[in-house]
């Protein structure tokens, strides 16, 4: 069959050539700068990964607020799920994660979500029992909220870069964005209640299981 009868059998990739990717060529032809997109995805993956780490600490320090802990845990596990979701796409596009985890963390597109009172991560740890004791739930919720806001800006930008050009990355970015928007709404509700004693409902209930990830794991939505 000639190319004239198969209009999509065009482009630079020859049959049997494994050095190039039609999956990349197709989105480049639609205007995606793949190199820029890979850089953006690595920055975003770094942010999700570091956020997962820092949320592990923040969750521990929500001492006495078991409801907040559970919600922080949902956000923590869903951010890890986002990292897992982004990574295959980086490799599909021909990219790779940095070989050194320090380089990976350093280039994260969003700030480290440091525990308040830990001097932006520089608090000396003279021994393993050096626990921060004067941090409040409101301070932690502020860190969580701003981390989610950075994630929303990041994934909105990736949606903009890929909309109508790269449906696979767009679909992934939109799923992640959906969950980041929910996380922001949770932390607005909690911080508003905890710090300002003002009711600002998020509109959501807790996940069915911790870190359920209804969008990023294609799980069922809460819709009884």
């Amino acid at each position: 069959m000639s190319n004239g009868n198969k209009p999509h059998a065009t482009g630079r990739v020859q049959a049997g050539d494994v050095s190039q990717r039609v999956g990349v060529e197709a989105i480049e032809a639609r205007g995606v700068n793949v190199g820029e997109l890979i850089e953006k995805l690595i920055d975003a993956a770094g942010a999700e990964f570091t956020t997962y780490y820092y949320y592990t600490i923040l969750r521990m320090y929500l001492a006495g607020h078991e409801d907040y802990k559970e919600i922080c845990e949902d956000a923590r596990l869903e951010d890890r799920a986002h990292f897992e979701l982004i990574t295959p796409r980086i490799y599909e596009l021909g990219g790779t994660l940095p070989y050194d985890i320090r380089a990976f963390a350093d280039r994260a597109g969003c700030p480290d979500a440091y525990l308040p009172g830990a001097q932006n991560g520089r608090r000396p740890m003279s021994n393993p029992f050096d626990v921060v004791t004067n941090v409040t739930a409101a301070q932690i919720l502020e860190v969580l909220l701003e981390a989610e806001r950075c994630a929303i800006r990041t994934w909105s930008e990736i949606c903009d870069l890929t909309f109508g050009k790269d449906p696979r990355t767009y679909d992934m970015a939109a799923r992640i964005l959906n969950e980041e928007v929910e996380h922001e709404a949770w932390f607005i509700e909690l911080l508003s209640h905890e710090r300002d004693d003002v009711v600002r409902p998020s509109g959501h209930f807790r996940r069915g299981t911790p870190g359920e990830g209804p969008y990023s794991k294609n799980a069922g939505f809460y819709n009884p």
């Binding site: 920055d43 597109g109 969003c110 700030p111 480290d112 932006n120 701003e146 806001r149 950075c150 800006r153 990041t154 930008e157």
Partner: peptide
Amino acid sequence: PSLCERGWCCTCAVKVLSGTIDQSASLR
């Protein structure tokens, strides 16, 4: 332009042609 808005990602970077800025609120 901006992204993180915490003084980390450098999206909002400017060249300072003259003057002094307090960056003590920036994370990095």
